[in-house]
């Protein structure tokens, strides 16, 4: 059976042979680490930025807007390269040396760059959520005697997050896929491992196929989980309203 004129015979022992297997496993672990840490950090940073952007104070509003406008108009890859190549140079002399000797600095730079990139998008999404909270709820919160922090913590953010859950989930999946960009600064994550195997054995298709399967499988699983979560939350909302009426 020859449908495609393949000039390649697959050797499926390669991904399971040492040291390639070790690299791939480290790659998967690092991909998870980068994705989870950047997601958590950018959620926190994005929420703070969103609260700052909806504030009436110029000195909170303006820096946040400037940050978001700057970051959103520059590609994510630039921030990775910036934190890997330029940022250590900006530090005082002793720190530059220490960072250059630190083996995993590329991972740290990747996390920093991806967080910077992602937090701007997250802040935009959360901001729309905050703006969609009806004014009556905030007035009710004020009249029950909650202070500003309590209003944000107990009234505004829960409602905002519930509204923006679908775009937020899409953004997080996007962020997970973007973690493959860390390969450009030689952070030893999954894409880097596949390229390393390719450049040593010239047999990259098996590992690339595995890596693609990993990314597709995990992204689709995350997407399905997000849909489940949304449905579950919706059911929760309707049941609450039914109880009240």
């Amino acid at each position: 059976m020859k449908i495609l004129n393949l000039r390649y015979d697959f050797d499926w022992s390669i991904p399971f042979r040492e040291p390639f297997a070790g690299w791939l496993i480290t790659g998967v672990k690092l991909t998870f680490l980068i994705a989870i840490v950047t997601t958590a950090l950018s959620l926190i940073a994005g929420t703070i930025l969103a609260i700052m952007r909806t504030s009436r104070f110029k000195f909170l509003n303006l820096p946040a807007r400037m940050y978001v406008e700057t970051v959103r108009n520059i590609p994510g890859l630039f921030w990775l390269l910036f934190f890997y190549f330029v940022f250590p140079q900006m530090l005082p002399f002793g720190l530059t040396e220490t960072l250059n000797q630190y083996t995993y600095y590329s991972v740290v730079a990747g996390i920093l760059g991806l967080t910077i990139d992602n937090s701007a998008y997250v802040s935009d999404i959360v901001r729309t959520g905050i703006l969609s909270v009806p004014r009556g709820h905030i007035e009710a919160a004020v009249s029950t005697g909650l202070n500003r922090f309590q209003q944000i913590r107990y009234i505004i953010l829960p409602m905002a997050f519930r509204t923006v859950l679908p775009p937020l989930g899409t953004r997080m999946i996007h962020n997970f896929k973007n973690s493959s960009l860390c390969m450009a600064i030689a952070a030893p994550e999954l894409t880097w491992a596949t390229q390393q195997v390719e450049s040593i054995t010239f047999r990259g298709l098996e590992v690339t196929l595995l890596a693609t399967g990993f990314y597709i499988g995990l992204s689709l699983t995350l997407a399905v989980l997000m849909i489940r979560l949304e449905r579950w939350l919706n059911i929760d909302v309707t049941s609450i309203t039914q109880m009240r009426t």
Partner: peptide
């Protein structure tokens, strides 16, 4: 649509970069 959307762009690029020569 689902498969392409859930693949990182970098891996797509590598697929066409390495796989097209294999097909000829």
């Amino acid at each position: 649509v689902d498969v392409i959307r859930s693949t990182p762009l970098l891996l797509l690029l590598f697929w066409f970069y390495f796989f097209l020569p294999v097909v000829g």
